[in-house]
Write a protein that binds this DNA or RNA. Structure first.
Length: 299
DNA sequence: AAGGGCCTCAACCGCTATAGA
DNA sequence: CTCTATAGCGGTTGAGGCCCT
């Protein structure tokens, strides 16, 4: 099937928007709200295609857009999220109130990327340049950086859950977990995902009792590593957040049958470049204890 | 002052995902 | 199930401004 281009008509304007066009678009959207982008231009008296109108609104005219320089905190958040998610600009934008995916993408390409390079860090892999083998040697404490630890968290979450749980863990890592946990209780999709996770891990002994994710977590990582990865949360806070997520709603074993299994090979694709054999071995040791309790190994 | 190169970022393009008929 | 419209995403482009020589 070949899609017809949205701007095929003659007389459709392209290029920079004039203040008059902006005013027409704002006025129309204030009266009628967002949506119906296909028919909007004609109704609003604009010689633009609907897509152009939507982008102009989403990236520039929306009243909640924050303009101006990025703060160091925002820089830090973008870098951490990029290490976790890659070029998923829309996903990254959800963690930065008032910033658009387009703005973050531009900022990354024009500023942050260069800055990382200047610091000797590969902006794609977030690993030091000219030391591609660095993470494969040396003791564990040296190879697990904060982003490495974050990746371990992601990997564990991925092993037991669908994307939404990984997002919750991401929330913890960048320090806005209270928001995401609040979202859990208000979003049935996230709730199901979280209960799925819980069921996977609680089918035998009960996850929040003697098969505690967070207990295993403290065995798996050193205090230094945990402290490193908690970033804006203290150690106890991080553990409590994890327990909170994993014991959400006190869902019992087997409450959800036939839940979609996380496809690790797909979900973990974003980690492949970062991961190394030792990480795998360490992780396997950790998760095998959970697997032996759940009776189900995702591979 | 001029002009060439570089940088920034709004806007566009091509594609996929999703919903509904 | 198929088809189509629409929304959304990520990559790319290009106009305009800035800087350097």
């Amino acid at each position: 099937m070949v899609r017809t281009p949205c701007c095929k008509e003659e007389g459709i304007r392209k290029g920079a928007w004039t203040p008059e066009e902006d005013q027409k678009l704002i006025a129309y959207l204030q009266r009628h709200g967002e949506g119906g982008w296909r028919t909007l231009p004609e109704k609003a008296g604009l010689k633009r295609c609907g897509k152009s109108c939507r982008l102009r609104w989403a990236n520039y005219l929306r009243p909640d857009i924050k303009r101006g320089e990025f703060s160091p905190e925002e820089d830090d958040t973008i870098i951490k999220l990029h290490a976790l998610k890659g070029n998923k600009w829309a996903a990254i934008a959800t963690y930065l109130a008032g910033r658009t995916d387009n703005e973050i993408k531009n900022y990354w390409n024009t500023n942050l990327k260069k800055r990382l390079k200047q610091k000797g860090i590969d902006p794609t892999t977030h690993k030091p340049i000219n030391s591609t083998d660095q993470t494969r040697i040396g003791p564990k404490k040296l190879k697990l950086s904060s982003s490495g630890s974050a990746r371990v968290l992601n990997r564990v979450a991925s092993k037991y859950a669908v994307d939404l749980n990984r997002d919750l863990v991401t929330g913890i890592i960048i320090g806005n977990s209270s928001t995401t946990i609040t979202d859990v209780s208000q979003n049935s999709e996230v709730e199901n995902s979280t209960i799925t996770l819980l069921n996977k891990t609680s089918t035998s002994s009960g996850f929040s009792d003697n098969c505690s994710f967070s207990d295993g977590f403290t065995e798996f990582f050193s205090n230094e590593e945990i402290s490193d990865m908690s970033m804006s949360l203290d150690h106890v806070g991080l553990m409590e957040e994890l327990k909170g997520i994993l014991s959400y709603d006190n869902a019992g074993a087997g409450e959800i049958k036939g839940s979609p299994e996380a496809n690790v090979s797909d979900e973990m694709e974003f980690l492949i470049d970062y991961w190394n054999v030792e990480d795998d071995q360490d992780l396997e040791k950790f998760v095998s204890s959970l697997d032996s309790n759940t009776g189900g190994v995702v591979s």
